[in-house]
Design a binder for these strands. Sequence first.
DNA 1: TTTATAAATAGCCAGCGAGTTATCGATTGC
DNA 2: GCAATCGATAACTCGCTGGCTATTTATAAA
Lengths: 107, 107
Amino acid sequence: MPQPHEIIFKTLADPTRRAIFERLCRDGDQTVAALTARAGVSQPAVSKHLGVLKQAGLVRDRHEGRNTHYSAELGALAPLIDWTNQMAGFWQSRFDNLEDLLKRMDQ
Amino acid sequence: MPQPHEIIFKTLADPTRRAIFERLCRDGDQTVAALTARAGVSQPAVSKHLGVLKQAGLVRDRHEGRNTHYSAELGALAPLIDWTNQMAGFWQSRFDNLEDLLKRMDQ
DNA sequence: TTTATAAATAGCCAGCGAGTTATCGATTGC
DNA sequence: GCAATCGATAACTCGCTGGCTATTTATAAA
């Protein structure tokens, strides 16, 4: 399996798809029809996006009669947060090393 | 101008480009040649990626003789962090609303 | 001054992916 | 049972982008 943040970046890179995810975060549970109404693209396009989001673990679906409700899986953002922290960590440790070096040169 | 996180998601979605950025975060200042040596793609490809990263504000370049050094601009990740926090915030406030509702129903 | 090297640009190509319309499967209401 | 609606799938088009090679520009070295 690829690194988890890989798929997350790719999935959220598309504006339409990210907008759908944002809407689910803001407003919670939504049917495909409700999402389509505001997406600015056709229903099949929305379904495809939801499929990609689901594949990435970013959303869950729940069937209720002939309606399908989708909701955001917020925990799935963790790898993104981890990656960002890791980058910041690299930065910080290089800074620390520089500090150490200067300290050693100073003494 | 587009939302800042828009361009960041798009820029970091490509694995090769993200790898270059990661390397700059890990190891700091690098010449194009050094980056090319590990990128697995041609020098022009690396230059193009660096151009995109620079456009996104994620890297800086510094000319030194006939070498060009690039370095990561870590602060540029802020919009990404903000966006993530915002999503988490939406989630939380919906949860709070639900709690309020339950509390009101309870009394 | 001529040659060699670093990096950017130009120009091209192939593959991917996001969009469309049309259709199908499933569920509900008449 | 039949018509209607919801959502997913199929099949296709098209633009974008990431890759390449070749070339250009700039600096350093010989």
